[in-house]
Design a binder for these strands. Structure first.
Length: 278
DNA sequence: TTAAATTCCTGTAAGC
DNA sequence: TGCTTACAGGAATTTA
C-alpha cells in the first residue's frame, strides 16, 4: 500500500508530466471518492485550472493549482490501500474500478482507479480542508531536517499507547503506515508493543534513525509493491525485496533465525522478532 | 485528551 | 470443483 516512499515516488514521476497542464474536464463516476466539496462543485471548480506544482505531504499527493494570488488551492489525492493515479492517453484501454477521470487536453487523462475504494479526492486550500475536517493536522515529515530524535521523544514520552500505534498516527509523524512501522521497529531493535512512555531517549533515537534510513532507502528503491502499488508507469518498486519483517510472520528472523512473531496491534497485523526486539 | 474498537470495501486464499 | 469465510489495512468515526 502507498506510504510515504510510494507517494514521494509518484509525485516525482508525475511532476514533469503534469506541471503546466490545464484540466479541461472532470468526470466523477463514483461520487463517494470525492470527499470535498460535493462532486458537482469539485468538477466545476477544477475545470479550467492549471497545475503549477506537484508535491507530497505525508501520504497525500498535492497538486497546486493556479488561482487568486495568495491562495494555494490544492487537488489532494490520497490513495488509501489500492488507489492508482496515472496520466495516460485518453484512448488507452479503460481498467475496471475507474472512479474519476480528469481530461488534460491534447489527448491525455489523469485517471483515479481504486479497487477497495479507501482512497479519496479533495479540492481546496489546506486551511479550508483542515477546518472542514477533511485533512488531519499532520505531524512532522520524518525526512525533514527539523524532525530530530529530540522532537520525536517529545511527541512520544508522555503517551501510553504502544509505540507502533503512535508511529501509525499521522498527527505524531506523517507518512508512516504498517510496512514502515514494522520495519523501523525491527531495525531499531524495539518491540512495537512497548508503551511509548516507557521508552528511553536512546531507544527513541534508534527509532528516529531507523525511520530516516529506511524511508530514504525505500524512496531510492521507488517504494514497496507488496499489494497493488504501482508507480506512475505501472511498474513495481523494489523495496519489498528488502523488507525484513513485514509479511514474514512465522518465517525465520533474518538476524537470529528465530521464527518471527505475529500479533495484532492498533488493529494491524504486526510482525516482530522476540529475540532481536526488546 | 487519549486510546481502543468499529466501519468502509473487494480480491485473494484458505478451508470444507 | 465450488462455495463460504476470513483476511488484508488508512483513517474517519464512535465508544469508553
Amino acid at each position: 500500500m502507498p506510504e510515504l516512499p510510494e507517494v514521494e515516488t509518484l509525485a516525482a514521476d508525475l511532476r514533469p508530466q503534469l506541471v503546466g497542464r490545464t484540466i479541461t474536464g472532470c468526470e466523477v463516476r463514483f461520487r463517494a471518492i470525492v470527499r470535498h466539496p460535493d462532486p458537482e462543485r469539485f468538477t466545476a471548480e477544477l475545470v479550467g485550472r492549471t497545475i503549477q506544482a506537484v508535491s507530497r505531504r505525508g501520504k497525500y499527493l498535492l497538486h497546486h493549482l493556479d488561482g487568486p494570488p495568495g491562495e494555494d488551492t490544492l487537488l489532494v489525492v490520497h490513495l488509501g490501500m489500492t488507489g492508482q493515479w496515472r496520466c495516460v492517453k485518453q484512448d488507452a484501454p479503460e481498467p475496471d474500478h475507474l472512479h474519476a477521470v480528469l481530461a488534460l487536453g491534447d489527448g491525455c487523462q489523469l485517471r483515479y482507479r481504486d479497487v477497495r475504494r479507501f482512497g479519496r479526492l479533495l479540492l481546496g486550500s489546506e486551511p479550508e480542508l483542515v477546518a472542514a475536517r477533511k485533512l488531519p493536522r499532520l505531524g512532522p515529515e520524518p525526512l525533514d531536517p527539523g524532525f530530530t530524535a529530540a522532537s520525536l521523544y517529545r511527541r512520544l514520552h508522555d503517551r501510553r499507547a504502544p509505540l507502533k500505534a503512535l508511529l501509525l498516527d499521522q498527527m505524531v509523524v506523517a507518512g508512516v503506515g504498517n510496512i514502515y512501522a514494522d520495519e523501523s521497529c525491527f531495525r531499531a531493535g524495539v518491540r512495537p508493543n512497548r508503551p511509548a512512555n516507557g521508552l528511553s531517549r536512546r531507544a527513541i533515537g534508534r527509532i528516529h534513525a531507523a525511520l530516516g534510513t529506511l524511508l530514504s532507502e525505500a524512496i531510492a528503491n521507488r517504494g514497496s509493491s507488496v499489494d497493488s502499488y504501482r508507480d506512475a508507469w505501472g511498474e513495481m518498486g523494489r523495496e519489498q525485496e528488502l523488507l525484513q519483517v513485514y509479511g514474514r510472520g512465522g518465517e525465520p528472523c533474518l538476524r537470529c533465525g528465530r521464527p518471527l512473531s505475529v500479533v495484532r496491534l492498533a488493529g494491524r497485523t504486526t510482525v516482530f522478532c522476540r529475540r532481536c526486539q526488546r
